[in-house]
Nucleic acid binder design. Structure first.
Lengths: 338, 338
DNA sequence: CTGTTAGCGCCTTCAT
DNA sequence: ATGAAGGCGCTAACAG
């Protein structure tokens, strides 16, 4: 059993409050007493009991980030960043899987908020497609920051990528290569970014006087399998598209797989682009051209925003939009390989 | 501010102890009182304060999983499983990045153990290559379960894949296809599984009277870039190997990339196999032949083992070895495409 | 500057 | 079967 504040007080021959002052770096302690306490802390191996502190302060110093399992991205790249923030700010960060509209997920969320264990939440898409999350947290008055929110609510802080701008830029890039028949793979309807990206694609076509064709838009659900199916659909057309812009990288991987399966040479016979720039996108042959979203940065900003709010430091911007950057790799080129 | 146990007691006209009995499902409460309390709980929206409970029980009900950031696998696939266990068993599960021998990581670990916030730990490779972890936790008497431990210590429970068996099986499979010149990509020296896999490869060669050649073994560090470099090295030989067995899937992805970069047809001109069966292995063209390690199962077993130990239910087996299964996909075939 | 007194919300012990 | 008292380890509020 570890030493408690009382043990330290006894060792340092002072009151527990003085010990408390020293370990919390409060002022009003004489240098001499301070160093006596510090010595006592060292010799006893004392460390504050975080649980007791949390109880009396009525704060758990824990935040929770809701993630939809099954997406590649959230994983490794992001965790290190998140946890580092936790360390800096003295928060424990709980990663919680959340399936929208799933009762088990919802119950878990209710428990976490009701039992006073979580000070604040960050949601990632498509978790917040389930209004339950925002409603519940509002009821319990637990602060929430959304990443790429489905609905941008004035009162809820968020950090989002600029999907419209990104999709516009990528489409324009393909057009500049000479492509005219550009297929597009969409994601779930309950995901804002999917809609915004489609819109960026449409506007870019429009600005360059390329007619929009319904038949060139196929649903991929933003998954690998969805990408395969959708790509097969588009490639079956006559004439087939010379380029496919998948609304996210996972779907693009599916499209790439399908193209290779059909013996198409990428990019000579077909250009394929994605969106997100997953860690894997540079590792897949021939390298995926995509829009880089600075996921680490987005997650970090959101988490810091939440913690700032929890600590009562009102940040100047509660709604942040981050732009995406084109990354050209081997999967794109001019139609017909020049 | 939520209702407390006192509020419920007042509403139900009984003592707080009775409320406590009801919410903890203890016996010795009359049916009538019990239902009165339950009604009061509902009408007040009471939920126990987990922080208070943790303090008085001197348990945080939190366990921590140490993961090395940068590996693909740990991520999405695994999290949902882990968190579900947490829900079942009423534990919060903290995922913590850990870099072996890194002082920041170490400090963080000290804090977590010293401040009474974590009841137990699970380590994943190569975190435990740093003896600091086991030493520290032993000192603080915090239970530990290791996944694929670097050193198997009698006193420390673990769950591990059978790397030797798996590598043996995969090598034998390649031999059965007719391969004789099989390259092997190794991982970091501080990773047990790397050594075991190499050993399985050697023994399989040996059993089939194929001479072991040093030049066919190249270091990959179990990363994509490592796989690229190592594959380039092997393919530069004369004659080049007809198959490459990468000690893990990430390195195999690198080898695959390099092969395609050099215009080699996989598997006709070169077979490539990996180990682990990452989620992505089926999504990369032409599909990676690999040994499937049931990662979810391993992580689940380890976590449940830890929680069982924490709850005082001594499990019958404290050291578990799980075997791997061959998964044949498009990246392997007979040498010379028959 | 330093110490004393009260809790935080809950569970444990021991009466009743 | 029920309740009263005490304390987990800490900090907040107020005295000295």
């Amino acid at each position: 059993m570890g030493a408690t504040i009382k043990d330290v007080a006894r060792l340092a021959r002072c009151s527990i409050k003085t010990v408390s002052r020293v370990i919390n770096e409060e002022p009003y302690v004489s240098d001499e007493l301070r160093s006596r306490v510090q010595a006592a802390v060292r010799s006893s191996g004392y460390a504050p009991n975080v649980l007791a502190r949390r109880l009396v302060q009525r704060r758990s110093n824990m935040v929770c980030i809701l993630m939809y399992p099954g997406f590649y991205q959230p994983a490794s790249a992001v965790f290190s960043t998140i946890m580092d923030i936790g360390y800096d700010e003295d928060y424990d960060i709980l990663v919680q899987p959340y399936f929208p509209s799933n009762s088990r997920s919802r119950n878990r969320l209710v428990d976490l908020s009701a039992e006073h264990r979580i000070d604040g939440f960050v949601t990632t898409p498509p978790c917040d497609a389930d209004d339950f999350v925002a409603d519940l947290l509002t009821t319990y008055r637990v602060p929430l920051v959304q990443i790429n929110p489905f609905n941008r609510i004035d009162t809820v802080p968020f950090v989002a990528g600029d999907d419209y701008q990104g999709a516009y830029a990528l489409t324009e890039y393909l057009i500049s290569l000479g492509h005219r028949r550009i297929g597009f793979l969409t994601g779930p309807r309950n995901m804002r970014s999917s809609g915004d990206r489609l819109y960026g694609y449409r506007v870019a076509l429009d600005r360059h006087q390329i007619p929009f064709t319904d038949a060139l838009v196929a649903p991929s659900e933003f998954t690998f399998d969805g990408g395969c199916t959708a790509a097969r659909l588009l490639l079956g057309q006559d004439p087939p598209p010379t380029a496919i812009f998948a609304g996210n990288d996972e779907a693009a991987f599916g499209a790439l797989f399908t193209a290779q399966e059909q013996g198409l040479r990428v990019p000579d016979e077909l250009s394929i682009c994605g969106y997100d720039d997953l860690a894997f996108s540079r590792n897949i042959w021939p390298g995926l051209t995509t829009m880089h979203q600075p996921v680490e940065e987005i997650v970090e900003t959101a988490t810091r925003l939440l913690i700032a709010i929890l600590k009562g430091k009102e940040p100047e911007r509660r709604q942040v939009i981050v732009s995406a950057r084109l990354v050209v790799r081997g999967s794109s080129g001019p139609p017909g390989g020049r």
